[in-house]
Amino acid sequence: MGFIKQTCHTALKPVRQAYGLLSENKRVQYIVCAALFAAMVAGPLFLGRYVIGVMWDAMFYMLLALGLNIIVGYCGLCDLGYAAKFAIGAYTTGICIQTFGLSFWLSLPVSVVMAIITAVLIGAPTLKLRSDYLAIVTLGFAEIVRITARNLEITGKATGLHSIERPSLFGLQLTKTEHWYYVFLVLVVAFIFISYRIRNSRFGRALAYIREDEDAAQAMGVNTTRYKLYAYMIGAVLGGITGSFYAVRMASISPTTFDFNQSANILLAVILGGMGKIPGVLAGAAFFAIFPELFRDIPVVGDMRMLFFGLLLVVVMILRPQGLWPERKKR
């Protein structure tokens, strides 16, 4: 084990040095961010449909990971059923459009309200207890949501909802992969903005105090139960919004999309990237979307890609238990 650690340590030295340069110079940071953003904007002009599809997938995971990051990364709560939050958004939008004939944009606030209601229903009784209980309750609730969706008439039972009408924006109906690429790019930027604003505020610090030491946070006057509920609600709202957009992007949703695997993947993306650190969370989510694709076409390895994926996760967790993104050094 020590040998592996040593080898990786030496191999990653240039990466660390590059990061050191990056973290010290604010201007370089801005330039890198701007360049990345420009590349993302210009991407669809040069890239094929398949690559755009994979990048859309990555952005979709980024949204989910950023939402869950508020709950897990910022506040230190363990949520094992994040798929339920995004299922509720997706089904709410699907039902609003198909059953009630609402437009997509009107279904969005309905999703937000539904997300808040469910978050309060689950959070209010459990968040008073120690944080461990939340893990069990969220896990159970996610299964309840999935099984309910599979059995109700209004959610389309096991087949789900199909041919959900695509929304239009400024008279343009959003049908092409490129359209959705840009919609999700805007969402990612918005979620990053929200995450940063929360992180650097009295509210965000209070969440971090709870994560670090709940008793000490109480002793400093933080109403821990209420702040945990707020974090949980914000996470649920972001998940719900993502779910709504997912429903109209895919035009069809079914219960299998929202199983435990999905919740686990999102949680792993957050942990892998380094809880609470936004660039890390983004990298973790991108990694989750892109990695399985990279190995798809290689014979033999392609069939075992999930095995390699698992191994890689284990190695990362041994080498960097705090996640991929480096620890913040002295500023």
Binding site: I194, R197, I198, S201, R202
Partner: peptide
């Protein structure tokens, strides 16, 4: 200041 203060700044 709470959530809205954080977001609206």
């Amino acid at each position: 200041q709470s959530v809205f203060g954080a977001l609206l700044r």
